[in-house]
Structures are given as structure tokens and as C-alpha cells.
Amino acid sequence: MKINLDTEVLTDNNAAAKFNRDLFTKHKTLVVNLMSSPGAGKTTLLEKTIAALGKEYSIGVIEGDLATEKDADRIRALGAKAVQINTNGGCHLDARMIAKVIDEFDLEKTDILFIENVGNLVCPSGYDLGQNHKVAILSVPEGNDKIPKYPVMFRRTELVVLNKIDLLPYLDFDVDMAIEDLKGINPESKLIRLSSKTEEGLDEWLTWIKEAYRNLQEQ
């Protein structure tokens, strides 16, 4: 007998994501899912963000990593609450993993929760975690071709942080081309140029976060 299931493969994940989202919404916690290749600068940007906003906002971080606690330790060193999820080789975080650690945060007192996904430009893009915003970080040394090469990631994120722009003078990364490619793949997406090293462009990112937070509180 043929049974027409006609069901999304990620049905379970999407149900868990809804569970997470309902909790986050109830507490008006802004949740940002940060995705990038390994080493593009997710943790460094989070360090800078916490240093700049940590007094004004209560910030929590969920760190996704293949094996270590290293990134969570970097966040804790700045006095923010960080919970590490080790995927034991898994290439992405899924909504169930997030659901399992949500209780470790006092959401009522958490204004902003950042989720640093596992470094990977492919797999994390498919999984809704229940976040308000998905952000991709692309770094200058990765080269120009990443946006057209990984269209799924850039279609499903609403903001691209182009990090390590301090390296632009040494590499032939064409920023205008990246912006054109991005527009061609996802016309709604925005790009912020930034260096976590020199902090050029950091203000624009911080403004984006604050606006997202304000919009959420007004809903």
C-alpha cells in the first residue's frame, strides 16, 4: 500500500524550533543565530559585542562546537553566561540541542542570546533553531566566490557581516562584487563591512543589534 506522507524531512526539528521560539518570545529575548565557515570570526565578534554591550544588556551565548569548550571559555572570560554544546563531530546545531540547554539560562533576565553555530557554510543553514535572526559572517580571506558558491546559506540569512576588512589591502577581495552577488541571491539581505580587529564597522553591527532588540520589545 502506498502512503502519501508529503512531510518535510525536518518536521521534528521545526517542531522543536517552534517550542524554542515560543519560549524566547514569551520572555522577549532576542535570539541571533551566527553562522560562518570555521575561523571567519564568530567568537571574536561576540567578544567585541559583549565588551561593547555587556553593561547595557544581559547577554547569553550558546556555543556550538565539534568538541571543545574553548569558545565558551572565551565568552565566560568576559563575564557573560555561556553554555557549550558539543556536537561530537556533528556539522550543525539543531533545534533539539538548543531546547535541551535553554533551561540553563534565566530567559526572563536575558536580553540577548547569541547562538554561535558550528563553523560550516552548508549544514547549519537548513536548521531553524527558533531564532529571531540568522546572520552569516563571511571573512575577507575566504574570497569572493563564497556567496554564489553557498547560495543556500546566503538566501536564508538576512544580514552578512563581512569580517576582517582590515585585510582588504592585502587580498584581492572585491567588495562591490560580493554586494552584487548577495543582491542577486537574496535581494532583502544587508551587508555590513567590519573588522573585529580594528573595530571599524563595529558600530554599525551594534546599531543593528540594538535596533533588533528594540523592535522586539515593541512588538
Binding site: N4, L5, D6, L10, P151, G184, I185, N186, P187
Partner: peptide, 27 residues
């Protein structure tokens, strides 16, 4: 590659209508 660019209008006015599905259709 630039999947939102309509080849007729040369504007980012194209929207994906197929290609993102990932389903169990039947068994």
C-alpha cells in the same frame, strides 16, 4: 548563480518558486 536576477528585467525581482523542497513524498 544570481538566482534572483530576472533575465528579462535585469533586476533582482526573481523569487524562487521551486528547488528548496526536502520532503518524504511517500512510502
Amino acid at each position: 548563480r544570481r538566482l534572483s536576477i530576472c533575465p528579462e528585467c535585469a533586476l533582482p525581482s526573481g523569487r524562487l518558486i521551486a528547488g528548496e523542497t526536502f520532503k518524504v513524498q511517500s512510502y
